[in-house]
Write a protein that binds this DNA or RNA. Structure first.
Lengths: 228, 228, 228, 228
DNA sequence: AATGAATGAGCGTTCATTCAT
DNA sequence: CATGAATGAACGCTCATTCAT
């Protein structure tokens, strides 16, 4: 359905002149999109700042949106690789989740412009769903689900845990925090929130052996006590 | 600082012809923005569908973006009022949180176009931060913090609970779920997820009287240091 | 198949401001296209010379090509009407053909820019075939065929006369002469050629009662005398 | 004045690698120009289809228009040679004219792409007038005038015959028929029309010895004056 | 001789917005 | 109050052409 919007090879480890130019375009575009917004940014401005002609940008990317969509491709791939590597060294689903969240947050915090582009212009763009960049991102996200599934299987997490919900809570929280962070000019240290956040999640899903939900509306008897 | 991008009075309960026309514009715009995207949508299209001249739209709203920003004003006010009303009837911070989340989700689920506009075009727009609509939304969000603070005060929630983090987790999860929901064409029933989600959060912050971090195998003691 | 490329009504007898503006655009475009060529001409230039904004041109015409295609609409209609009127007054197919050719040539000679646009940019444009302007032109051309058919029917022209061929000869000659005329800067008086041209055609198709073709290769006997 | 837009030698009988490549470019360009139109066709497309780099095309032709103008050079030369050869074998101006028309039509019918390029993109291009290709074409056309002149001189054609008009009629008819033929996708057999067409012309100009204008009712005597 | 890579120069088209009525 | 008409201001994209190798 969707044509490939990127023209030439990867920029992960740019070796030749072509890849170096391509990377320069992507890096410049990331900055410009982040600072001025995707629609407000112009190819002309990116070209000027990258010291490359506008026409050359169209040599590498078929459209302005194609350029936008190519931004996360390599970054996400690298994050995925890093994640895969680290997860091998960690035991326990809980600790793995913590590592994943930390790596996500750390990656965004180290690349605020990339984080801004991802949170503000990619995550809410329907066209992005069909692109290579999104596939790369999905691979990273998939790791969360996998770890949760493993946690349930090993009995570390409760049997009734809904992996989709937990993944959504983790991703949603990250997205919310990072979005706030990029929209308000990056004042906070996001990494401080990783542990408390994971703590909450884990306590909510860890297998304690006894019925954890003694306060819910559905079990009115026990509820009355704990409710104020 | 807070620019006034709306020209004439409220549309909550349109009485006169002006308010009716204004409401028609907002409703049409909500639909059009939701279906076609903010930038892709044109004033001309909205005018045509609302059977009102383009020039008239500019009688009511100063700019296209002003029209966008006016969309959540009344809806958010109404949600806030409903919330306030319901919260009076509920005891216990946990139950109040559950009610808040339910009301948010319910409101979005009943107005998919509004939800789409909010999640896709307002929540990530820096200019929106300074508007009346955002104030209305913040009022609703403030309720979450208030309830969490109350929960901590009454001892229902753990003392060390970070209200900002918990609020971010709640909002982030809602935003993530609703965004997915609007981007994939509203297939799921979101309300089913309210209880499990709140359950996880509450278990993570409820005051049980004992050390909450009994699940970490790798750093049973060192935890306190590494978490910052 | 083809969308209507013209936006607003006729310019034949411009009454209101809109029609006057539209006519001004068409007249200016005719001049500019004629002098600079269709592809070389720019909307900007037409707008400047017509003292109308570029955007306004797009109010009246959907595309640059649509503007081109709208040039012959009214002119051809008027020519058709004139032709119809005159033909009523003339007896004899031969004389009618002469009148038609004269009116064509006269119309082109009086509007060299229009003639140039028609001959150089419309007659050879495949997209033009599906437009309103082409329909108007075809109506004029149809008259030729009709008159020839009548001539054959009344016995004024030979029975075996191929109307399509004769029409092609008439049109082809006109087109060739007018094209040369516009390409070389309109030096000649084309009307002088109308009579000789029609004379040749008529002599070739008039019904003389005896076999006219005594010289052709196919009848070698008689041929030898007249050849060389 | 006559700019040389071609860089290297003839392609009539390509011997060396250079000429073979050049011919391949011209043949491909003819096809592409014919199918997509001159302006719509791109050098890139021609290069791709000819399996030759764009830069190489510019080794052989100075500009895109120069490439277009070089298309008829060899073809017209060959047609001229063929024509010259055949005319030597034919007696009689009428038969020579027939042969010329037949050779023109036959040549176009056998090379529809070339015919299309000639009729649609060369014949109406003012810049083409100054080129080598046009000179070659003019040589062929000159033959028509020469034959007509000879016919008048030998008394085969009427004394008052206007050679320019007759040539225009012949060329115009051919152009009109071929243009229609290429624009409508080459459905007809054009050769069938050669004889009838020449018959009409010849009858219109052949010397019969008596007053030719016995058919005109309106101006039975005045004819001689009004004809140029 | 041949080409991959780079670009200068341009243009059609879109729309939010204004204004006269 | 309502609107039809007009436009200013941009911008993405294309491609013929050049140049270094």
């Amino acid at each position: 359905m969707k044509k490939n919007l990127i023209r030439k090879g990867s920029t992960a480890m740019p070796q030749n002149k072509t890849d170096i130019r391509k990377k320069k375009i992507i890096d410049t575009a990331t900055k410009v999109f982040s600072q001025r917004g995707f629609k407000e940014a112009t190819i002309s401005e990116i070209a000027k700042k990258a010291k490359i002609s506008e026409a050359s940008i169209y040599e590498y990317f078929l459209t302005k949106e194609g350029l936008l969509f190519s931004i996360p491709v390599d970054a996400s791939q690298m994050l995925f690789d890093t994640m895969t590597f680290h997860l091998k060294l960690i035991r326990g689903a809980a600790n793995k989740l913590r590592a994943i969240v930390f790596l996500f947050i750390d990656s965004y915090q180290k690349n605020p412009d990339f984080a801004a582009v991802l949170m503000l212009y990619l995550k809410h763009n329907k066209n992005f769903l069909e692109t290579e960049g999104h596939v790369a991102i999905k691979a990273g996200i998939k790791q969360i689900t996998t770890v949760i599934d493993q946690g349930i299987e090993t009995g570390e997490f409760k049997k009734g845990t809904n992996p989709y919900l937990i993944r959504s809570m983790i991703l949603g929280t990250i997205e919310h925090l990072v979005t706030n962070w990029v929209m308000t000019g990056n004042p906070d240290n996001l990494e401080e929130l990783v542990d408390p956040m994971i703590d909450v999640i884990i306590q909510g899903i860890e297998n304690t052996g006894n019925d954890p939900v003694h306060w819910s509306l559905q079990r009115p008897v026990k509820r009355e006590e704990s409710s104020s």
